[in-house]
Design a protein around this nucleic acid. Structure first.
Length: 179
DNA sequence: CCCTGATTCGC
DNA sequence: GCGAATCAGG
């Protein structure tokens, strides 16, 4: 794809709105997130603010020209070590908190015979967090604030998780019995 | 492993 | 100029 004026314009717009490079790449289409990031740099657009301290601490420039990658010079790596310090009484992780709130989340078009069906907890993903392997089953009203996607893992290349797969595609017989 | 942005450098 | 490969970090 070419960086037409219009595409560049859209890139600038979305970037300034804070969308991630991968998301912008997805909206533009035909380009990778790397392409987007590269373009952002070439355009001298402001990068993302680094929260707090860890600024780009002078990187070693990259191991001298690995042009013909003979898979050799990548043996030893400086073992980075940090004291993974978590405050003694650290609270719940984001995931743990989310899990709790997901209790009454689903507003799915649940089948009448849902009693026996286990409705999986959704990960409440935003549109910007969907990937090739996340369930894209929408939950809630798109016009509503709490609109989100299932986001559970979906089998290779499938748009839905195993649960929503059944809702998306049902044998006519079963569907008829359901109504 | 999923993701993020940053950088280098062959093309 | 472009962007894959790579790095560093969450």
């Amino acid at each position: 794809m070419n960086w037409t004026d219009e595409r560049v314009e859209k890139l600038k717009k979305l970037w300034s709105e804070g969308l991630s490079a991968s998301q912008i790449a997805a909206q533009l289409g035909g380009v990778s997130r790397n392409a987007v990031i590269g373009k952002v740099h070439r355009l001298n657009l402001p990068g993302r603010a680094k929260t707090g301290g860890t600024q780009a601490a002078a990187r070693p420039k990259r191991p001298a020209a690995p042009a013909p990658r003979p898979a050799a010079a990548f043996a030893a790596r400086p073992a980075t070590q940090r004291a993974a310090a978590r405050p003694a009484g650290a609270g719940l992780s984001k995931d743990e908190i989310d899990a709790v709130f997901d209790g009454a989340a689903d507003q799915l078009p649940v089948p009448a015979n849902a009693n026996s069906i286990v409705v999986p907890m959704s990960r409440r993903l935003e549109l910007t967090q969907l990937t090739e392997r996340t369930c894209k089953w929408p939950i809630g009203d798109p016009l509503n604030e709490d609109f989100h996607f299932c986001g559970n893992e979906s089998p290779d290349n499938s748009p839905y998780c195993t649960y929503h797969q059944r809702l998306a595609y049902q044998p006519s017989a079963e569907r008829r019995r359901m109504r």
